[in-house]
């Protein structure tokens, strides 16, 4: 694994391999990233809408989980954190590319890998700017979910509850939680061929 791996590649890699050490690295990275993003979210001006508080609650509660050593498992396909990071990274990369087209000097930007044009992580330390983008993106994605119930499922999932626990809290079927998580993924990834 090279040091200059993008989050997406990294997650893919960890999913494909089965090294516990890799999971440990990911946990270390993730812990610092969540803590940075949470700090960022706290310092953002409150605009009154409760989506922000919802996102903050997800970060707060999740952060407590992380403190207790509860990390998202990379082999959990439903894990929303991984989706959040991938989406943020893709956007950050698109932005870089877009700026690059205007300025033509983006290759000199130290946070890109000149050979692949991919956004890279400096070593294993999360970039504060990236963490801020994660926090913003998280709010944006939660706002995207029109249905309050859908939003609650997303937050609970991010807080680290199992599908069974969420089903019990909402008094609905596990089948429903699985289906709605699938819908959340689709809503976030914005895939629509219709």
């Amino acid at each position: 694994m090279s040091d200059a791996a993008s989050v997406t590649i990294w997650i893919d890699q960890l999913r494909a391999g089965d090294s516990r050490a890799a999971q440990k690295l990911w946990e270390g990275y993730f812990h610092r990233l969540v803590s940075l993003a949470r700090g960022k979210l706290r310092s953002m001006p409150r605009r009154g809408a409760d989506e922000e508080d919802v996102a903050l609650s997800a970060f707060d509660s999740f952060f407590r989980g992380v403190e207790q050593g509860r990390f998202p498992q990379l082999d959990d396909r439903d894990d929303l954190w991984q989706i959040l990071l991938m989406i943020t990274e893709r956007k950050a990369f698109d932005l870089l590319e877009h700026e690059g087209r205007q300025k033509r000097d983006w290759r000199r930007n130290q946070s890109t890998d000149a050979s692949s044009g991919k956004l890279v992580l400096a070593g294993r330390e999360p970039d504060p700017a990236f963490a801020a983008q994660v926090a913003e993106e998280c709010e944006k994605l939660l706002t995207k979910l029109a249905d309050a119930n859908l939003r609650l499922i997303a937050v609970r999932k991010m807080e680290g509850y199992t599908n069974n626990e969420i089903a019990k809290e909402l008094g609905c079927s596990l089948v429903t939680i699985e289906r709605r998580l699938r819908l959340i993924r689709l809503e976030w990834e914005g895939r629509d061929s219709d």
Binding site: R179, R182, L183, L186, E187, G190, R191, D192, S193, D194
Partner: peptide, 10 residues
């Protein structure tokens, strides 16, 4: 499924 189909199913 596409997003809109999945929404309808949901």
């Amino acid at each position: 499924l596409s997003l809109s189909a999945e929404r309808r199913v949901d």
